[in-house]
Design a binder for these strands. Structure first.
Lengths: 167, 167
DNA sequence: TGGGATAGTTCGACGATCGAATTAGGGAGA
DNA sequence: TCTCCCTAATTCGATCGTCGAACTATCCCA
């Protein structure tokens, strides 16, 4: 289990963690290339994703809710929305039921961006995954679910300060 | 295939992409909580990971190489290294073979950080993955490899401007 | 030896993000 | 009805990560 060839073919925990880390790096780099090509900052693209998800889910989203989803302050979110509104991606609508509340409406340029981001990647992923059987896909889904849960649980511990006392 | 229950249990491409996206979001949030707890910026932690990987791989790393790995300018990398050196994580050593070149040396506080980041998460992942058989692990590895390759390929196309003309 | 290239840093400017202060709106209790 | 407290979002001034240009130090080839 020490030769370079076998090391690349391993599927013990360490090998899978290494693959997972590489996937994270590559995915982040992909998003970065996309952002650069479309003159968007990291948080701009993240925000559009959050707003789009809410829109597709039939939920309205306020600046406060966006701030919470992005872990940004209210003022940073205001500036972010200023940028997105200026770029024509989003419109702020004052809610009729509670005039303190603003609801964010996605516009077509943002929808087009979403199609450009997820379209080619989704197509390529579908092609690469086309050889997996339904049984194999169940394994993959279980893996992803388990990995998400492990990450969320570890993060919860960390957030509650159960990871020692770094401060 | 339209009920909410079945939707959550799906393993077609769309369902797997949704899981993958969620994993990305949760992983990013985990990293963010960790950074906040340790007073590190995103690029600071990314840099430490790159330097640590090079160190563990027995390779020396220069600021220029770090800049390239992080997609930062040389000057931003200088500022970043100033921060990391001030925090005691890294030391800059002037290379003996070419005095233009600096080699980055990781220090113990950074190693401890790495243990705190990957240790608990790795333990939790190992626990969650412990039920997967070797055959299933091979499926998972193939999935991760395929997904990485799809991402890299799509990104390459995007970087070469084969994705339409967004500018 | 001189010139061009490489490697990294310094400098001044930009802009994303922050916390505090502010403005607008809603609701409950007296 | 009025007042007070809370909610929602924005404005404001400050901080700091990042950028490109300019600079310093080093290397190598003609």
């Amino acid at each position: 289990m020490t030769s370079a060839h076998e090391k690349d073919e391993g599927f013990d925990d360490t090998a899978l963690i290494r693959k997972l880390r590489q996937l994270t790096v590559e995915t982040d780099h992909f998003a970065e290339i996309f952002r650069t090509a479309h003159h968007l900052h990291r948080t701009d693209l993240n925000a559009l994703t959050v707003i789009m998800d809410a829109t597709l889910g039939g939920r309205s989203l306020s600046p406060g809710e966006l701030a919470e989803a992005l872990h940004l302050s209210a003022s940073a979110t205001t500036a972010l929305l200023d940028r997105l509104e200026a770029a024509g991606h989003v419109v702020r609508d004052r809610s009729g039921e509670d005039r303190r509340r603003i609801e964010l409406r996605i516009r077509e340029p943002a929808r087009e961006l979403g199609r450009r981001f997820f379209g080619p990647l989704g197509t390529e992923l579908a092609r690469e995954w086309s050889g997996f059987t339904p049984e194999e896909r169940q394994v993959i889904r279980r893996f992803l679910t388990a990995t998400i849960e492990a990450t969320v649980r570890t993060r919860g511990r960390l957030a509650r300060g159960e990871e020692g006392h770094p401060s």
